[in-house]
Design a protein around this nucleic acid. Sequence first.
DNA 1: ATGCGGACCTGTTAGC
DNA 2: TGCTAACAGGTCCGCA
Length: 233
Amino acid sequence: MALKVELSGEVISSIKRRGKYLIFHSRLGSLISHLGMSGSFRILSNSTAPKKHDHVDFILENGKTLRYNDPRRFGCILWEKGDAYQHPLLSGLGPEPLSAEFNEDVLFKKSRNRKTSVKTFIMDSKTVVGVGNIYANEALFSAGIHPKRLANRVSKKRYVTLTHSIKQILLRAVSMGGTTLRDFTNEDGKPGYFSQSLQVYGRAHKPCIHCATTLKEIRINQRSTVYCSKCQN
DNA sequence: ATGCGGACCTGTTAGC
DNA sequence: TGCTAACAGGTCCGCA
């Protein structure tokens, strides 16, 4: 039972981001979208023929079309006529990683009753948003913390370091246009260059850049986890 | 409440 | 070279 929304003539008043969700605001309500692992929005001329995995077009009055493409279909587009931030997918999200609300005190406090691994903990969107598998791996290496260490067994001092690492890695990755592993590109169709700066992710069985120990790879929650057994504990 | 495994879907790559 | 299996950047859900 699809929800039908009449958007003809509606004005997109703003486009915001919360975590990895995009929110298109208009007078009637908000469109909430997530790109999943493979989704993209592109601006095209109205006459551009659809290609494989194009799913949604927003025909704009300036002769352009905003087109949503998602091969793997892990992404979504939802309509919320009320307050988008009260939507169940958004209401429980933790702080933005680059905001002042994300700091060592908050992270440490949240960790105290958590018996899961610190990697799972920082990838949990209720803890903090924006830390995906790649950046979790990189941040833990940078902070010298073993990914399987329990969240409640990480000291305050180390959460200070970890908080700093998360912020710094995300800032650097964003400034370099993100991390292209396969086919991700930015709005100009160019790849992100942070993959060239990755220190552990994708480097399993290669030498640690600090101590030359062979990097180990394990699975945590079915996600690839690479770390240095000497530098991280 | 928390933690874990499974699910969603398709394309690419690794391995036989 | 060709087929098959495993794996991939995310995150929600349901069950224990």
